[in-house]
Amino acid sequence: MLSASELANRLARDAEAVCRHYLSAGRRAGNYWIVGDTANSKGKSLYVHLTGPRAGRWADGATAEYGDLLDLVRETCGLVDFRDVADEARRFLSLPQPAPAASRRGDARTDPPVERPADERAQRLFRMSQPLAGTMADSYLRQRGILRASQHPALRYHPSCYYRDLATGRTRSFPALIAAVTDPGGTITGVHRTWLDPGGGGKAQVEDPRRALGGLLGNAVRFAFPVHNPVSVMAAGEGLESILSLSHVMPGMPMVSALTANHLAAFELPPGCVRLYIAADADAAGRNGIERLSRRAQARGILPLVLAPELGDFNDDLRLDPSRLIASLRAQLAPEDATVFLPS
């Protein structure tokens, strides 16, 4: 009897066949299978790696869901018990599979290109990037009222970062703001890229100008965050620019951007934390992430407190009036934290 990992590996060997069977509304684009969601809707939100060491791994950019092909079988078939998922996977593996397109044409088959692990690619991209100060990325953040971003070691700039259109497979280059995602020990596990308009007009005019690469689960982009010292008070939220806006007016408070609601819910809380401020995001996914992280914090004996913006997010508040944002935060922070972290 094959184990779960063995079943997932067997499915990954024929990842494209799995996708054609369970996600027939999608299509291949380069080394990915692109489809709307696990319900097999038309669209481009969900992508499945078809080659390399991540073959069979998938992620949905709209919901932040991800997993392997066993998870995909479970979601597409609406199954709950693992026994049923395994039975369905074994049924699929026993079906005769069509020959790959290249073989049907009589072309010679070639081995798929070797792909570096995502965390290694993330670390390499961060090393290749340059300090933020005076760059287009620094200017982009200044236009959004974030004036001291260059003081954060987690942020860098790449003048020509590759962008792949997941629908067409076409690759282009844009300048990009690069943010390091790190684990509790400070090791880079991933990066977040914000592609920018070369003409200085904000974000690049592409379908999804923000993407993460590498290991996000439990990790985050960290600001003013001591690696080896205890953290008693901190703030956590989703969006990079929203957290940078809070950090702009409270530069001494340790903060993290987890980048998505699901990753916020799974953030690994530091030892010694007694109060956790959670930056609110108004949508349903954001509220769910706040609730899940709050429950985990309470189970650890940490007091969770939600910080709410007056407008759409904290960057909107900062751009409207920094002093008004400070006043709003003063009313929401514990008095002892307001004294320590907010300007008098």
Results as ranks from 00 to 15, higher is better:
R172K: 03
R172H: 02
S173Y: 06
S173F: 14
S173T: 15
F174G: 10
F174Y: 13
F174W: 00
F174Q: 14
F174S: 07
P175N: 04
P175G: 12
P175Q: 08
A176Q: 03
A176L: 03
A176T: 04
A176N: 10
A176E: 07
A176Y: 04
L177M: 12
L177T: 05
L177E: 08
L177F: 03
L177A: 06
I178Q: 00
I178C: 10
A179E: 00
A179Y: 05
A179I: 07
A179V: 09
A180Q: 14
V181K: 07
V181Q: 06
V181F: 04
V181M: 02
V181C: 01
T182V: 15
T182S: 06
T182M: 15
D183I: 12
D183W: 13
P184A: 05
P184C: 11
P184W: 05
P184G: 11
P184H: 09
G185E: 08
G186T: 14
G186R: 08
G186E: 03
T187A: 11
T187H: 04
I188F: 11
T189D: 05
T189E: 00
T189M: 14
G190N: 06
G190P: 03
G190V: 01
V191P: 02
V191L: 06
H192E: 06
R193E: 02
R193Y: 04
W195N: 09
L196C: 15
L196R: 02
L196I: 09
L196H: 04
D197T: 10
D197K: 03
D197W: 13
P198W: 12
P198S: 01
P198H: 05
G199A: 10
G199L: 03
G199W: 03
G199Q: 14
G200A: 12
G200R: 06
G200Y: 09
G200V: 11
G201T: 09
G202E: 03
G202T: 05
G202P: 06
K203Q: 10
K203G: 15
A204G: 13
A204R: 03
A204Q: 04
Q205T: 15
Q205N: 08
Q205D: 11
V206A: 03
V206L: 09
